[in-house]
Design a protein around this nucleic acid. Structure first.
Lengths: 327, 327
DNA sequence: TTGAAAGCGCTAACAC
DNA sequence: GTGTTAGCGCTTTCAA
């Protein structure tokens, strides 16, 4: 490390307190002394030790981010927006992955606290009131995204239920007679936080309930390739509604290998509107989940909480159905 | 924050030094005292303050990563591998973006030093001996990826020159009579570090020199849509070699809008082998750039340097041409 | 086997 | 307007 306030004090022949005053222009100080100190500081390229400052101030200008991983799904877009927004406020981002390990997630959170991050953005795999207590015990401002933990924990996201309802409605309007909803195993909900997909499935089912003449199927299994193929109905126009663009794209590939062509043999809609879709054809129908907005909103909500000026604890953003060529 | 060593000392009726010895099983200590201390520590859920430790030890278990951005190109894959590898070694990752701003990059690096990161991984936009000095002045272990700064600065990457040469060779073998190399403006090299693309262009040109009967064109401009279209030759079978998969995909889209179909009207090869290519058809010919390997190698080289046991300062990994359907 | 004391670099309360 | 002092929580000599 470079020069310290102590060194500066010696160089300028004053006390460290005076140095401090000059550097932070706080309190009364002789303009000339200040001038001298500032000149010397820049001459020797003084930079404050942020660790020391963090230790005494209890504030580090770090926010911690705990997510599943970085290259999957829309996390990279999310992270990019988070880092950019944090940077605007001179904040650093400490990113850690829980990789779907619930205990690991806890450990990562604790470590972030050990390092005095000022706040945390979390995409959790845990949930429930028990976990809520754990989070509260951390005594750190936290904003969750994606999965809700429990009522009362700040959350930013879209209304997946409504979005999925809209998507289902759109599919039905397009004249499909059978709609197959494809998502990860919801049965895991006992052990895992699948809130996002639960909500989407709910939206699907609710819309379906309004259309008794439409056949609805829910596939929540990792075997969705085989199951989906099995659900393809020759007599009924069938569409798949996948709770993620990646799932949709994978499904399209798989059905192609089985000789089924999208649009011709079946319709399909994804969810997320990941930016890469623009390179995929036919263009996938999907649902925007406002990833950048969620990210920046989450960061700003976090800042508000950190400054204890947060009005609401939950922000639900709009999402829209995005037209394509696969229906 | 929670309980401190001072609190533990009071609770156990010993000095803080003894607490320290128990916690780190260092030096001689009475097994019973140790036992008591450990029990009390876990009972009160003691966790060391990493800021304080970092301040005195001068080691924070943080590595800093400075890159262009997260969602672009292969940076997300890169980052994911970096974070995962760091985590294996109980290291945290502090990620910052320079967003192509050279001064910003410097500032980010300085801030990382202010926070005592133990080492840095850098994908730089700066270059040259001047900058090398700047980096050395930081007095922090640094490993660069993507763009080389200058000789002597640790670097991990592939041999882009050879890779591009191989790619060009493959295109020629496929019977194309005209090869158009598409990359970002190399003229910017005075102001920007375009090392990666320079090397690739060089490899292209070298192979071309060996085949005098093949027409070669180098497009290094952001206007590459128009220029590429203009280079399409009806008399000669033409292929584009793009120095990035994203450029290739964008070009394909653009030419499609102009009524030109890949394979039929022209051949094309990308570079990077980003994982998303598996959803794109026709399957793009490309060149693997070993992104995860580069990342893990970079992290491990950094660790070696940090432990001053680095043998070599540069690691060049293999890359291969990846077959597709676009030639 | 244990403890006292100093120090990392900074901030903040209080006195002069 | 400036300086003294104590303290953040930990580690590390040195002495007992």
């Amino acid at each position: 490390m470079g020069i310290t306030t102590k060194d500066l004090a010696e160089l300028c022949g004053v006390s460290r307190t005076t140095i401090h005053r000059a550097l932070h222009n706080t309190g009364r100080i002789n303009p000339e002394t200040k001038e001298l100190i500032l000149r010397t500081a820049s001459k020797y390229d003084y930079r404050p030790d942020m660790l020391a400052r963090g230790l005494v101030k209890g504030q580090t200008y770090y926010i911690g981010v705990v997510i599943l991983d970085v290259d999957n799904r829309y996390f990279s877009q999310m992270l990019n927006a988070i880092v950019a927004e944090a940077k605007k406020n001179s904040y650093f981002v400490n990113i850690t992955l829980h990789e779907k390990n619930k205990e690991d997630e806890k450990e990562q959170l604790c470590r972030l606290v050990d390092y005095h991050v000022d706040g945390i953005i979390l995409s959790s795999i845990n949930k429930g009131v028990e976990y809520k207590k754990f989070l509260e015990n951390l005594k750190k401002p936290i904003v969750t995204i994606d999965n809700k933990i429990a009522e009362g924990i700040p959350f930013v996201g879209i209304d997946g239920r409504k979005a999925a309802a809209d998507g289902t409605q759109k599919i039905i309007e397009k004249g499909y007679e059978k709609v197959v909803f494809v998502c990860p195993p919801l049965a895991d909900k006992a052990s895992e936080n699948v809130y996002v997909h639960e909500m989407r499935a709910k939206g699907f089912q609710e819309t379906l309930a309004k259309h008794p003449h439409i056949e609805g199927v829910l596939i929540d299994s990792w075997d969705y390739f085989d199951l989906s193929h099995g659900e393809l109905d020759i007599k009924k126009r069938t569409a798949f509604f996948c709770t993620g663009d990646m799932i949709a794209l994978d499904l399209i590939q798989n059905l192609k290998e089985r000789g089924k062509t999208v649009v011709q043999d079946y319709g399909i809609m994804g969810f997320d509107n990941i930016d890469f879709l623009r390179y995929v054809s036919p263009k996938l129908w999907t649902i925007s989940n406002a990833v950048s907005e969620v990210a920046t909103t989450a960061v700003n909500l976090l800042f508000d909480i950190m400054n204890s000026e947060a009005a609401e604890t939950e922000k639900i953003l709009n999402s829209v159905v995005v037209g394509g060529e696969t229906l």
